[in-house]
C-alpha cells in the first residue's frame, strides 16, 4: 500500500459512503420489502434481490432497504413500501415483479414521481 494522500481520504469516504449511510440510517429513500410467510411464498425474496440489484447497478448512495413482516394484504403480495425523506406519507406498491421494481426506481426513487398504476394507496402508517 503506497502512502495515502488527502485526495485518497476523500475517495475512501466516497466509496464507503453507502455503507455508512446504511449504518447510520440516513437516507433519501427507504424501501421496505414485506416478507411475511405469504410474501416469501409469493416471491418476496426475488423482489428483495432485484431491489438490491437496482441499488447496486445505479450506484445509489442513499437508498436503504429493510424488510418487515406481512402487511396484512396477503393476496397482493409481494409488496414493498417506499418512504421518501421529502414526502409526507409512505407508498405501498403491490404485486411486485422485477420489471415493476425497475420502473419504480426509474420514476419514484429517482424522479419523485409516484407510479400510480402499481400503488395500493397512500398509507399513513410508518414502518419502524
Amino acid at each position: 500500500m503506497p502512502k495515502i494522500t488527502i485526495a485518497d481520504l476523500e475517495k475512501i469516504r466516497e466509496d464507503t459512503k453507502r455503507t455508512l449511510n446504511f449504518r447510520l440510517g440516513t437516507c433519501k429513500a427507504k424501501i421496505t420489502v414485506h416478507m411475511g410467510t405469504c410474501g416469501i411464498a409469493a416471491g418476496a425474496r426475488d423482489i428483495l434481490s432485484s431491489v438490491m440489484k437496482e441499488i447496486e447497478e445505479r450506484k445509489l448512495m442513499d437508498v436503504i432497504v429493510t424488510n418487515s413482516g406481512c402487511a396484512g394484504l396477503c393476496s397482493k403480495e409481494p409488496m414493498i413500501t417506499v418512504e421518501m425523506a421529502n414526502e409526507p406519507a409512505p407508498v405501498k406498491y403491490i404485486d411486485m415483479t422485477p420489471a415493476k421494481i425497475k420502473k419504480i426506481f426509474d420514476s419514484h426513487i429517482l424522479k419523485n414521481e409516484l407510479v400510480k398504476e402499481y400503488a395500493l394507496a397512500l398509507g399513513s402508517e410508518k414502518t419502524a
Binding site: M35, G36, T37, I40, N67, A128
Partner: peptide, 29 residues
C-alpha cells in the same frame, strides 16, 4: 441491526437461528 437501528440485548448464541429467521428473513424484529 442497521439501517433500522434495532437494539438487541442479552443475546445467547442459541437465540441466533430464531433471530435470523424472524428478523432477517421474515422481517419481524
Amino acid at each position: 441491526v442497521q439501517p433500522d437501528g434495532i437494539f438487541y440485548q442479552l443475546l445467547k448464541s442459541s437465540d441466533i437461528p430464531y433471530l435470523v429467521e424472524e428478523h432477517l428473513i421474515k422481517g419481524r424484529p
